[in-house]
């Protein structure tokens, strides 16, 4: 198929995106990478200083490792539980129960609400004086002080996880779009063979969704690595380092420490970690290969 005219077309197809990528992202990215090797603050020009920033991060910075640990745990949870929920909802809606379009739209709404609003909602809902925890505990007959979910470092991580784990509408929408392209005759044939709906989901649909679920897992992983807004509105990474992830840590280094060199070293580490995960997920899902 690679005829000469095709070659020209291929180049034409690639060029705009590559151009956009190189100019708008490549140039700033190069800047980020080289200044990660520099002494560089908000108020001074970068001066090359070698591996100092990385040494600082990797060997003298507990917060960095706390942030990496939390980030990875959140990635794991979102890629497994989160995407599974999104996928389950998609399969459920694909059965076209009465009102499925309504449910599809409704499930998307939380992903549209700006985080400044939803974040403060979660903050108040889990507030030990005003929120849902006190009445719930009373209902369950527990004595003693109300659990302070965002205020106690033993619970804060899980409290934050609850604010996003169930909202996997993005996965649902992506998977539903793919489900729509699967031929009805295939399902009909399976049904005639006596397969239950659940068996169809499990043994016919899921394998066909491999590529797109892989994509959802990648997006979920990336979403957790770059998660910032909800944490910033509710806990700012605290108490202690219990909800500190790489994005919040990076933000703090830039705006509180004014240290752009270190910030950019964290960026580079974040990109490397993310790429490693993306490649790993790609391998696991044999991503990029045709189904045939």
């Amino acid at each position: 198929m690679l005829t000469k005219t095709n070659r020209v077309w291929i180049l034409l197809f690639l060029a705009p995106c590559l151009l956009m990528f190189v100019v708008l992202i490549g140039i700033p990215l190069v800047n980020v990478v080289w200044t990660s090797f520099a002494d560089y603050t908000t108020f001074s020009k970068p001066e090359i200083s070698g591996w100092g920033n990385y040494e600082q991060l990797l060997f003298h910075d507990d917060s960095f490792w706390d942030a990496v640990k939390n980030t990875l745990l959140w990635v794991l949870l979102q890629c497994t539980v989160g995407v599974s929920i999104g996928c389950a909802v998609a399969l459920l809606l694909f059965r076209k129960p009465f009102g499925w379009k309504f449910f599809r739209a409704v499930y998307m709404i939380p992903s549209i609400i700006p985080t400044v609003a939803s974040g403060i909602m979660f903050y108040l809902l889990l507030n030990p004086e005003l929120g849902i925890v006190k009445p719930l505990q009373q209902f369950l007959g527990s004595q003693g002080p109300t659990l302070n979910l965002f205020g106690n470092s033993s619970y804060a991580f899980w409290a934050l996880t609850l604010t996003w784990l169930f909202y996997s509408a993005i996965s649902t929408v992506i998977i539903m779009a793919e489900l729509g392209t699967i031929s009805g005759s295939l399902l009909e044939a399976a049904r005639i063979d006596g397969a239950s709906r659940f068996q169809i989901d499990l043994f016919i649909l899921l394998p066909l969704l491999r590529n797109i679920i892989g994509t959802c897992v990648i997006l979920a992983a990336v979403g957790m690595i770059t998660q910032f807004d909800t944490i910033y509105v509710t806990t700012k990474g605290g108490p202690g380092s219990s909800t500190l992830n790489l994005s919040v840590y990076l933000y703090n280094t830039a705006t509180l420490d004014n240290d752009y060199g270190l910030t950019n070293a964290i960026s580079v580490m974040q990109i490397l970690l993310g790429l490693f995960l993306v490649l790993l997920i790609g391998r696991a899902f044999k991503l990029g290969e045709s189904h045939e």
Partner: peptide, 23 residues
């Protein structure tokens, strides 16, 4: 190329603010 594309998703805007502003 795919890896480079994927890395875009991971770029923190905090780091890019200054170079993109200049650009």
């Amino acid at each position: 190329i795919v890896a480079a594309i994927a890395s875009v998703m991971l770029l923190p805007s905090q780091s890019l603010a200054v170079p993109i502003f200049t650009l």
